[in-house]
Simulated assay, not measured.
Amino acid sequence: MATSFLHAQRQITLNATPDEVWQRIGDFNGLHLWHPAVSASQLLAGSNNQAGAERLLTLGNGATIHERLLEHSDSQRLYRYGIIESPLPARDYQSLLRVEPAADGKTLVTWQAEFVADGASDDEALAVVEGIYADGLDQLRQLFAS
């Protein structure tokens, strides 16, 4: 039986410049500084913002997510990462966080992933991942509200 990848994506337009937004969210080991579900981030291996770096995210409920950085580009304002181990209902998970210019000096933030549902239906797995993205992007909206 073929395994099909699911595609999750959320976007938000912020009233800030791309550089301001990237400065806030472009640090691979800094997710805890802006995502409300993440209480801590610890670099386990490699150098921060260098491919191969690994972080351990601790969530508010004590659960942890172990991730590896696959690509990081300040010039393109993006990073890609994969999950090594997590309680999420997903496997073969790879994600992209990107910051791009939008109209009127604003900024478009896109957070997307491809993964296979694991331990949940496709719809349930998508809802979990997209919920995580929505919570983070809603927090960014508040941080950049003017």
Rank of each mutant, 00 (worst) to 15 (best):
M1Q: 13
A2S: 15
A2D: 06
F5T: 07
L6G: 02
H7Q: 12
T13G: 01
L14Q: 04
N15P: 09
A16T: 02
T17E: 09
W22T: 08
W22K: 10
R24V: 01
R24T: 13
G26I: 09
D27E: 08
D27G: 07
F28H: 06
N29H: 04
N29I: 04
H32T: 00
W34Y: 13
H35Y: 00
S39I: 06
A40Q: 15
A40G: 13
L43I: 10
L44I: 13
A45N: 13
S47W: 02
N48Q: 00
G52H: 00
A53Q: 07
E54G: 01
E54W: 00
E54S: 00
R55W: 05
L56D: 02
G60C: 04
N61C: 05
N61P: 02
H66K: 12
L69N: 03
E71L: 14
S73M: 02
S75T: 15
Q76V: 06
R80Y: 04
R80W: 12
Y81N: 01
I83T: 04
I84A: 01
S86N: 04
P89N: 08
A90V: 12
D92H: 09
D92I: 00
L96W: 05
L97Y: 10
R98A: 13
V99K: 09
P101V: 02
P101N: 00
K106W: 00
K106N: 12
T107Y: 10
W111F: 15
A113E: 04
E114Q: 15
A117C: 12
A117S: 15
G119K: 08
D122N: 14
D122L: 02
A125V: 07
V128L: 04
V129P: 11
E130A: 00
I132D: 02
A134K: 14
G136S: 15
L140A: 06
Q142C: 02
